[in-house]
Amino acid sequence: MRGCWNWLMLLILLSVCSMAVAEEKQPETKQQAKPFLSIKVVDEAGKPVAGAQSGMIAVVTGSDQKTGVDWSFGHYAVRSDEKGIIRYLQREKYYGTIFVRHAELRLVGVKRIDVDEIKDSPVLLTMHPECHVTWSLKSSQLNDIGKQVNQIRGHAAVDDLSCLFCNSSGSTFHFYLPPGKYTLSGAGEHISPVEKTIEIKPGQTELDAGTTDTAALKYILLTGKSAPEIVDVQEWKNGPVKLSQLRGKVVVLEFWGWWCGPCVIRGIPELFQLREEYSEDDLAIIGIHVSYGENDEVGSIKEMDEKLAQVREKVWKGKQIDFPVAFTRKRKLAFAPGGAKVAHSRMSVEYGIDLFPTLIVIDRQGNVVRKMYPWDKVERDKLKRLIEAK
């Protein structure tokens, strides 16, 4: 899969609603433009399905069929016409998978389509009765320290491409999928990512994928304990530096990547602001750069800087990163013994980082304090008090 599902998840959560509204309200003149992809959706009997909602992916938020769920569709949030035809414009937004659902008929369809290999148009996509898949997560480690799993997020992937995302404030995911083989991935505010493979048989309308015991994110278990040293660094920018050398200062570690939109648009500018507010004698700032997918990977600080050239000019207003950045080696590792190898650096494992950007605060004694959201005033006030409490 190109890039990472974390970035896709953030992108979808931030923009899916606005995109859906904007694209459904496109002027009729634009809708007449030649589509790069046309699909004909039919039911199992081959009858065209009119009024089916479609998108590059879909996001379902809520509980179950009894209490109701909220559906959102991302790019190409358009419906099939009376002949079952769906036409897609703006090829630059296409990621390779189409998800289609008819709410009243409870039909769903998923198809991975390589537009460069299309021979016949429109492409036929058969919809099937949806199967309600439930998958629960728990964490014995969190339970032992009196903490909850809290909000979870997950996605289903077919042919190595994500097709359906799920958000839940409880501990159970609810996916609605057609027959086929899928890889389910789950993560949460306090738990490490996990994966599970399922197969939905034709005609199956319910599937209980069971309960998976997940490991707690490492930084939660480290709260109040000595912060792990920075390790497995390929190259430093404005470094090197060791945490052991910074005792007596408050330290913030920003886990980020050049490929991560929220990191470069919001995360790094927030660090610039922190650097302006507090002296280096009181606050040390260190970036932990993590590579992700093969298409997003860079091999050196120089390449990273080259990738960020336009961002520096247009977003950072010419500002340069003047704090140390540890360029970590790309590795595929498990967050916990026996788990899926979904971590991308040794430092990600050491601190349990699966979302980017993530900022970890370390106190003057060298102990992990918490994960921090620097855009939140309450969080910033907590950091201020920590710095002022010399």
Rank of each mutant, 00 (worst) to 15 (best):
G3V: 01
C4I: 10
L8V: 04
I12H: 00
L13C: 07
V16R: 00
A22P: 03
P35K: 03
I39P: 00
K40Y: 04
V41F: 01
V42G: 02
G51W: 04
S54T: 15
G55Q: 01
I57Q: 08
Q65F: 04
W71Y: 15
S72W: 01
H75R: 13
A77Y: 03
E82I: 05
E82M: 04
I85P: 00
I85M: 04
E92H: 10
E92Y: 09
K93W: 07
Y95P: 02
F99W: 05
E104D: 15
R112S: 00
R112D: 00
V115I: 15
V115E: 08
D116W: 02
P122Q: 07
H128D: 03
E130T: 13
H132W: 07
W135C: 01
I145W: 08
K147D: 09
N150S: 15
R153C: 12
F165Y: 15
S168T: 14
G170F: 12
S171G: 06
T172A: 13
F173S: 02
G180D: 01
S185L: 12
G188H: 04
P193M: 11
P193Q: 11
K196R: 09
T197H: 09
T197C: 05
T205N: 08
A209V: 04
A209K: 03
G210H: 07
T211V: 15
T212I: 13
D213G: 10
A216Y: 00
Y219R: 11
A227Y: 01
A227H: 04
V233W: 03
N238V: 06
K242N: 14
K242Q: 13
Q245S: 15
V250S: 06
V250L: 13
W259S: 02
G261Y: 09
R266Y: 06
E270M: 14
L274S: 04
E277A: 13
E280N: 12
I286F: 07
K302M: 03
F323E: 03
P324I: 07
F327N: 04
T328G: 02
G339V: 05
I353N: 02
L355H: 10
T358W: 06
I360L: 13
I362T: 07
M372N: 09
V378G: 06
E379A: 12
R380W: 08
D381T: 14
L386K: 08
A389L: 10
A389H: 14
